[in-house]
Every structure is written in C-alpha cells, then in structure tokens.
C-alpha cells in the first residue's frame, strides 16, 4: 500500500468492486499488463448493490484518502437491479460527505464491464491523480494497521 516517500503523499484508495464486471476488468487490466497505480486496494463484492454506505464511511474514518465503487452498467446487473440501488446510495453518500465536511470528490463510482480493462486502469490512474491533488484524507493520521476491532 501507499507509503510516504521522501515527503510525497501517496494516496490510499479502497475500491469496492463488483465480482461480475469491475473486478473482472481489474483482472483483465492485470493480465494484459495495463499499468495502473498501486495505490488502490480492491475489495471484491458480489454486486455493487452490496456496498453499504457504512463501508464507505468506516473506510474514510480509518484513514482512506479515497473510495472507489465499481459496478456493472445499468441493465447488465447479475442480480437485475443491484446496481440501480448502488447508484442511489452513491448519490446519497456524496451529499452526506459534503454535509458532514468530507470532500465528496473523494468518492467515485463508475460502471466498468468485464471487458473494459482499459477503462479500469484509466479510471484508477485518473482518480489516484485527483486524490493526490486533494491531499491526505481527513482521517489519514489514524493508524489503521494492526488495531484489532473487538
């Protein structure tokens, strides 16, 4: 994961990615050797609709600088309407972050299908650069490694 290198800020980004498309796209990007920054750690979900707003909040509170959600295009969801709920939740989350005082630009969602490896790596590159520009997240100083949650 991102380390501080000679005072330069390396973003820590968590990506909740849908098993059926975005996660597969990430695989594709990997096998096709499409380079994308190592700053993102992917957490596979069975559907973007599984992404609970509480995951996003918890991850920010534990020090993430950015959160990414990847799902299937509308109409292509493996579970029919999961991604539609995900879009609504994501929209709510943006406004929640803004209301509380966390920059909503730190949350991003994209539809990336299994064949869109290039789109995946381009998105991650773009998002990482954007977060780098925004600087460390509001809870970045929290030590996350090694603390057990009872």
């Amino acid at each position: 994961m991102g380390e501080e290198v000679k005072g330069e800020f390396e973003p820590r980004i968590i990506g909740f990615t849908c098993n059926w498309c975005t996660y597969a796209a990430a695989d594709l990007a990997g096998t096709a050797r499409m380079k994308y920054p190592p700053n993102i750690r992917l957490i596979r979900q069975m559907c973007s609709g599984r992404v609970d707003p509480l995951f996003v909040l918890k991850v920010f509170l534990r020090g993430a600088d950015g959160v990414f959600i990847g799902g299937c295009h509308p109409g292509e969801c493996h579970y029919m309407t999961g991604n539609l709920s995900a879009r609504r939740r994501y929209s709510m989350m943006k406004k929640l972050l803004e209301s509380v005082g966390i920059d909503p630009k730190r949350l991003r969602m994209e539809w990336i299908s299994a064949s869109e490896g290039i789109k995946f790596s381009d998105t991650v590159k773009e998002f990482t650069a954007q977060i780098k520009g925004l600087g460390p997240g509001p809870f970045r100083h929290i030590e996350t490694e090694g603390k057990e949650q009872k």
């Binding site: 509308p74 109409g75 969801c77 029919m80 309407t81 539609l84 709920s85 879009r87 609504r88 939740r89 709510m92």
Partner: peptide, 9 residues
C-alpha cells in the same frame, strides 16, 4: 434508497 425504478436500468 429502496425505490429504484425499472426504467433506471
């Protein structure tokens, strides 16, 4: 959050 409509697909 639970009111997703079919046409949104």
């Amino acid at each position: 959050l639970i009111a997703a409509k079919d046409e949104e697909a």
